Amino acid sequence: MYARQSRYGIDNWHSTMHSHYFTEVLLATDGAGELQLTDRTIPLRKGAGVIINPYVLHTEYSSHQQPLEYMVFGVDRIRLADLGRGPVEVAQYRDDHGELQPLLKSMVHEYAERRTDSAIVLNLMVTAVMTMITRDRWQMLPANSAQIPREAQLLKDYLDNHFKEHMTLDDLSVTLHIDKFHLIRIFKESFGDTPMNYVGTRRLAEAMNLLRTTDYSIGQIAQITGFDSQSYFSQIFKGKIGVAPATYRQLAHRSAHALQET
């Protein structure tokens, strides 16, 4: 899909929770930062890598003192699974001996140059890198995004754009002109979750982002992200994340402060 090298910059770095329909592979090459998921963070230091499966909400944060640098590529039609436990959201790996970094640099260069037969070269490079990362630990499963029904993708796009709004399955059915039971089935088959559970996940992810990056009150964040009340928001947040919103904000600020000091 792409291969590039990135470095933190205050003017061009946007830490917003997002997901991709393909698998993303990232390797930190310098500096310090962390990968934010909906329920945890993963430290990113030189030699640390992560593989993010399709449709997993995430974003990256960087230390101001040690700007994060990384190489990243996107690859379609595969997803990672644990050999013993099945599909995972994110897999961590290490490149302590520097074996992968030259290969990723070659991928970035090849993608930028777009010379004759670059697609063939890049596919071979991806196969080599993914095999080196996953052997003896994970397995690569087929995940052809082209097989996702148009109606399921249409519904996901709508939910991503309107998750802060009040909605019910009946509302979605009327808006998209699709039977609600059909909506539930195709969404579950395509993305492994029900539409309303996905809305809840998106709301929590946005709430976590606002708790971390703004001074909005808990009540304001509850209202912005579409929860019916502050008390309901706090109840759901603690049940899913494990701590109250105020506690999460304190922990996130401590983590950010420590990251900036590294």
Rank of each mutant, 00 (worst) to 15 (best):
K188Q: 12
Q223I: 02
I218Q: 05
Q139M: 15
R249I: 01
D82F: 01
P142Y: 03
E206L: 14
Q101A: 14
L211A: 05
I120H: 08
T214L: 02
K238L: 10
A48P: 00
N209P: 01
T59S: 12
M125W: 09
G47S: 06
A246Y: 07
D179P: 11
A28E: 03
Q65S: 15
I241S: 10
A81L: 02
T213N: 15
A152V: 06
Q260N: 15
G219K: 10
Q5Y: 14
G9R: 12
H58K: 03
I52A: 07
P43T: 06
Q153F: 15
I241D: 07
E151C: 01
T131V: 03
A128G: 01
L37Y: 07
I241Q: 09
D76R: 15
L104M: 15
L68Q: 05
L26M: 09
L68W: 09
K46T: 09
H18R: 09
R212I: 03
E24I: 07
Y248G: 00
Q220P: 00
A119C: 09
T116S: 13
F227N: 05
N123M: 07
A222E: 01
K238I: 03
I236G: 00
E24P: 01
A28C: 13
I186L: 13
L83G: 06
L57E: 13
L122K: 02
T127W: 05
E151P: 00
A48Q: 11
M71C: 08
E261S: 14
R79N: 14
F187S: 05
R115F: 10
M17A: 10
M130I: 08
A152D: 07
M208I: 13
M17H: 10
V25D: 08
A244D: 01
E99P: 12
M1A: 12
Y198R: 10
E261W: 12
R4F: 15
I221W: 04
I133S: 05
F227T: 05
D160E: 11
Q220C: 04
Y8R: 00
H177I: 06
S145Y: 08
R45F: 09
D11W: 12
L83E: 06
T23Y: 04
F22Q: 03
L27C: 04
W138N: 04
I236P: 00
R79S: 15
R203E: 03
S63E: 01
S15N: 13
G242R: 03
M132N: 09
Q92G: 12
Q153E: 14
E34L: 14
G74M: 04
M17G: 10
L35C: 14
A32M: 05
M1G: 14
R94G: 14
T131Q: 04
L100G: 06
G33M: 01
S62C: 00
N161L: 13
N144K: 12
F233M: 01
F163N: 03
G47W: 09
G9Y: 10
S145N: 05
T59E: 13
Y232F: 13
F187I: 02
H18L: 02
W13H: 01
H58W: 04
Y61Q: 11
E60Q: 12
L211G: 03
S231N: 11
N12Q: 15
